[in-house]
């Protein structure tokens, strides 16, 4: 390959460039020649920069997070000092202590539960929608439908948060100011709204992250040969049996890939939950981390973040077993 590259410019050299000195004086050729035959050096140069970015900036900052969880907070200035202590880790992980359980562990498990719920709802919606687009809808409409599914991603994250706030906003009390208290879109149209709070959070999260579930599943279905469905039908399988025994096993990696997105994005989100919650409670664990960080108690916040870190690693491992990474 190197030889061909070396030779090619000589052939392609335009006549107008005839006056220029040839070969060795052109720096790109000198570089090419230098790397020729030094395969390892070539790979190292190519990957060195992105890899070191990954190691230093990405992994490095995570390591820093773990270390800063060990710093002691100066009681008066509330700045982290370099004295090491395990107090913060205990305050985050000592689950047998009722204060830690109530204040940290349970809220975190609750948040993980919400993330699982959102993932399940997203999968339940995404499967039929993606199936329709990939296998049933007319071919010419497919492109438009895909765009439609991705359209919500074109709006800003905060815009969508405030849109949901406006949707679920409940009717005001008896003592509302004139012109206020009519409630949001849901209240004024169908006279029902979940109001601010937990249901609104789940709805908003499902809305936010649904496209991330639909797309991998759609990609998986697109790869599924139609002949398999025909074969299942020829062998006497009813639609549901086909879905359960043929489609679902083949889609498992795709669902797992989508689940990685929806689970981790929900687990870490706290701004939209705060917006559609109207300050009623700190429902998502991220809010607690945010509050502690603002306390300011940076080391304790760092210790808190180890919870989602551990869970995400476990979740990724289990999704890897389901084949998620082959489907990306």
């Amino acid at each position: 390959m190197g030889e061909r590259l070396d030779d090619a410019p000589l052939v392609a050299e335009p006549a107008s460039a005839g006056g220029r000195a040839k070969g060795p004086s052109r720096p790109s050729r000198a570089i090419n020649r230098y790397f020729h035959g030094r395969r390892k050096l070539g790979v190292a140069t190519l990957l060195g920069l992105p890899l070191s970015w990954m190691l230093v900036v990405y992994i490095g900052s995570l390591a820093l997070l773990v270390v800063s969880a060990l710093y002691r907070l100066h009681p008066r200035t509330q700045k982290p000092t370099h004295d090491l202590t395990t107090d913060n880790l205990l305050a985050a992980f000592k689950f047998w202590d009722s204060d830690v359980w109530d204040g940290v562990v349970f809220p975190f498990l609750r948040t993980a539960g919400v993330a699982l719920l959102v993932t399940a709802i997203c999968a339940a919606i995404a499967l039929p929608v993606a199936f329709f687009v990939a296998k049933i809808a007319w071919k010419w409409s497919r492109r438009g439908l895909i765009v439609a599914m991705l359209l919500p991603l074109w709006a800003g994250y905060l815009v969508k948060g405030y849109a949901w706030r406006a949707m679920v906003s409940p009717a005001g009390g008896r003592f509302a100011a004139a012109g206020k208290g009519g409630g949001g879109f849901l209240e004024s149209t169908i006279h029902w709204t979940p109001g601010f709070g937990r249901v609104a959070i789940v709805l908003a999260e499902v809305y936010l992250w649904l496209p991330y579930m639909i797309m991998p599943i759609y990609a998986g279905l697109d790869r599924l040969p139609p002949s398999l469905l025909d074969a299942a039908g020829d062998l006497g399988a009813r639609p549901f049996r086909t879905f359960r025994s043929v489609i679902l096993p083949m889609l498992k990696p795709s669902v797992a890939a989508g689940a990685i997105f929806t689970f981790s994005l929900t687990l870490g989100d706290y701004i939209v939950p705060k917006i559609v919650n109207n300050g009623t409670e700190r429902f998502m664990f991220g809010s607690s981390i945010d509050a502690v960080l603002g306390a300011p108690n940076q080391p304790l916040a760092a210790a808190f973040t180890l919870w989602p870190l551990v869970i995400i690693i476990l979740f990724l491992l289990s999704m890897k077993r389901a084949g998620a990474f082959e489907s990306l």
Binding site: G172, G173, R174, A176, A177, K180, N278
Partner: peptide
């Protein structure tokens, strides 16, 4: 909240 009467 004060305006829409949900805070009294």
């Amino acid at each position: 909240g004060l305006e829409d009467g949900t805070v009294l």
